[in-house]
């Protein structure tokens, strides 16, 4: 990974939610970087902190949540900005939002205002970041809507969200995200609420647009299939920490963290005939009572008390492959031995 290609670096980011009963450390020291033009997939179960990480990048964590540590370094032409230090309501971060880093959400239905026209919301996005006339902003919007495959864009500008289908709404959101040609698009489960065919179309569209606009994508999902299709690099998150970081081939072909391995075993495969899919034993622990040491240990089949009750650090198991597991080497050797037998 060449350093000058890096667009965004997140270092030891920590976000906590101060609830009346307890403090939830939703993001607990996450590290990753995103290269220009590449796709980083973030995968993990619900509650692992992936959506909170995305919002923290843009300074959009809402009370009672708060960024309590770490850096979000955004690199642009000869300049590095620590976005975690910016006033979350100040003008600097607001000009980066959408202007340079755009974000789309899981629910295309409710991501649009019920009482404003599509046009109103798109033109607003353009005019917030570019000083152009309303008609110029409208022209930009029409152009982008055509680009994302929306029919009759002029008419769509005058319509409301309830008049559109789910797929159309997400296309509108994508078109809106492109209004300022962002360098990074954060997509928080953008296809989860859509049916499978629409999902495939939206993923195709995003890949095409990524090439055309040379834009990086941070793709958040719990769906490993989508990750396989979209991501260049992957981080696997569990309870607020990244547990494995690698390129997409490594993650799918030689995963080293027991959690990643368990996730992969739990998806159906066409080439292996099994009676019953494996599941990960146990459930995600209550985030207010995270297990000691390795947070995954109560559910881990490789658990040994001597190794797993102290917090594991990230081990570099290969170039560009890091694993947060004290037993990673042993487990890998064990697996390799099992395969050669």
């Amino acid at each position: 990974m060449t350093q000058n290609n890096v667009l965004l670096e997140v270092k030891d980011l920590k976000v906590s939610f101060y609830l009346t009963e307890a403090t939830v450390r939703a993001v607990d020291g996450v590290n990753f970087s995103i290269e220009a033009g590449k796709t980083l997939g973030i995968v993990g179960e619900s509650g692992c902190g992936k959506s909170v990480t995305a919002r923290a990048i843009l300074g959009m964590v809402r009370r009672p949540g708060k960024i309590i540590g770490g850096e979000v370094l955004y690199h642009r032409a000869g300049q590095t900005i620590d976005m975690a230090q910016l006033d979350p309501e100040g003008p600097e971060i607001r000009s980066i939002r959408w202007g340079e880093i755009a974000m789309i959400f899981q629910e295309p239905m409710t991501s649009l205002s019920p009482v404003h026209t599509i046009g109103n919301q798109m033109i607003e996005a353009v005019q917030l970041h570019k000083s152009v006339s309303k008609s110029a902003a409208e022209a930009v919007s029409v152009d982008l809507m055509r680009r994302v495959g929306l029919p009759y864009p002029e008419r769509l500008l005058k319509s409301y969200r309830h008049e559109l289908s789910g797929g159309m709404r997400q296309r509108v959101m994508i078109a809106m995200a492109l209004t300022c040609s962002p360098r990074l698009l954060i997509a928080d489960e953008p296809t989860t609420a859509l049916d499978v065919t629409t999902q495939a179309q939206i993923l195709d569209l995003m890949r095409d647009l990524q090439e055309e606009y040379n834009m990086a994508i941070m793709f958040i999902t719990h769906n490993l299939g989508v990750i396989a299709e979209m991501a260049d690099d992957v981080i696997v998150m569990y309870l607020g920490k990244e547990v494995e970081v690698a390129d997409v081939d490594t993650i799918f072909h030689s995963p080293s963290h027991p959690y990643t391995q368990a996730l992969l075993r739990s998806i159906p495969r066409h080439d292996v005939d099994v009676q019953r899919l494996e599941t990960i034993t146990g459930t995600v622990p209550d985030p207010t009572a995270v297990p000691k040491g390795c947070a995954f240990h109560p559910r881990c089949r490789h658990f040994v008390p001597e190794a797993c009750l102290t917090p594991p650090s990230l081990l570099q198991v290969a170039d560009d492959h890091q694993v947060r597991c004290t037993r990673a080497y042993e487990i890998n050797e064990h697996l390799a031995a099992a395969q050669t037998e």
Partner: peptide, 16 residues
């Protein structure tokens, strides 16, 4: 105020 459309508007760079 916790509806996603408000979050979208915030992500667009509107002031609070």
């Amino acid at each position: 105020i916790n509806q996603p459309y408000v979050e979208t508007a915030r992500a667009k760079g509107l002031s609070e």
